[in-house]
Nucleic acid binder design. Sequence first.
DNA 1: ATTTTACGCATTATCGAGAATTTTTAAAAG
DNA 2: CTTTTAAAAATTCTCGATAATGCGTAAAAT
Lengths: 250, 250
Amino acid sequence: MSINPYWPNPNANSTTPAPAKTLVQATYDAMREDILSGLLGPGTKLRADKLKDRYDVGASTLREALNLLVGEALVASEGQKGFRVTPMSEADFQDIVRVRKQLETQALRESIAHGDDDWEAGLVGAFHRLTKIEERLQEDPSGLSGEWEVRNRGFHAALIAACPSRWLHYFISILFHQSERYRRISLSRSHTNGGSAKRDVHAEHEAIFNAAIDRNADLACELTEQHIDRTLSFLTDKGFFQHLQDMENR
Amino acid sequence: MSINPYWPNPNANSTTPAPAKTLVQATYDAMREDILSGLLGPGTKLRADKLKDRYDVGASTLREALNLLVGEALVASEGQKGFRVTPMSEADFQDIVRVRKQLETQALRESIAHGDDDWEAGLVGAFHRLTKIEERLQEDPSGLSGEWEVRNRGFHAALIAACPSRWLHYFISILFHQSERYRRISLSRSHTNGGSAKRDVHAEHEAIFNAAIDRNADLACELTEQHIDRTLSFLTDKGFFQHLQDMENR
DNA sequence: ATTTTACGCATTATCGAGAATTTTTAAAAG
DNA sequence: CTTTTAAAAATTCTCGATAATGCGTAAAAT
């Protein structure tokens, strides 16, 4: 994947030998994963020495990766005072959810309108992959969550893959990563504050999938909005936002 | 302004001495201006030596600024082959216009709904500033266009200033800069291909302003959509997009 | 004539050191 | 005791040099 998701990778479906990843990109990928997983918690001060040690790169390379993450709003640059993992807040997540609903439903509509057989095939495949791992995950909830993230991302990408708007894709991918951070961090830490009716994520995915394949745009969008909304109410019910201060300021 | 527009500058309305701009930020600002003005045309290969010479900075500083611009999709990073000013195309601008309409109308609605007296005051002031320079520009169309860009940006920002969604603001500012590049480059080069009915931009601004002050959200959004649409038809009528290939590949 | 290989040049990517800035610590003044 | 001032330490920012990679040219092979 190219650094900037908006501009497509020319080697997408080709047989050219290797992606030839640059060190900056590798560092960027690694750091993003560490931020999304919560290993680098919200608000964490990103000191050069520590990070140079952790990722084993020079100062410049590190700062380039950092500046790349600033563009995705996963890292905030503070004047002459270094970098910091972007803080999290309930208001921020509500905002993400609102805008994400608007953009994803729009993209889904256009995707359903433009989608051809290839789109359907890709969607069926992505849903199948996701189904398999969700079955496996239900029996054995240990591990595998990394792979689930990949397939969940793939399914949601396949849904809107036929939408021709590059800018929608770009913005949606940013917001998706933002959401992913909230979800993953909320799961990795125990905040079992309240009940929060058990959520059948797979059923939600299946319903969206069926509506999309049936070309029922209105229903698919409705279900997508609910799907996204539930990520918010899920975290709220869990009392996740009350624990945010605890993990800041390291 | 902080590098990442999404996260507000804590020194916004304070009396603290100086913004203490970092060299990276200065270079980033200068390069962005050069790209938006067309001085660095679409598709231009950004060679390190030339740019080091032009902006008088070291290699690392330069690359940091470059990576910042990648996040705004004004610069594209090509694997291991350096950087390049993002190309322009008719399809891209159509996409920008579509998404921009959707986001700006949404933000305008929320702004009109939430706006208080301070918002109105800011809007009146911004409109006044814009009016003055547009009057001056009508008599003497030479120069001043740089200042017009600033005030036009300010007016559009004031319209949606009361919208509470940080993410909408962030995405809109990206798309606004993208649009600005198309508009400015189309004006700086002579492509008087066809008639293109003379456009009274000030009248459009005035109509939007009045609708916003009247809290007529539907009308204001309608007018905003037309306003944005006209930037597209204006360039199309001018035959701008037929000249795009000419200015690539330097 | 076309393709392949090898070489030298141009450009990019990476690093570590030094300069500039902020933060911390401690002493001095009120 | 609190505030101010000043030096020291820690951290960030910037630069130029070096290593790695890609590109163009020309000789060699098919």
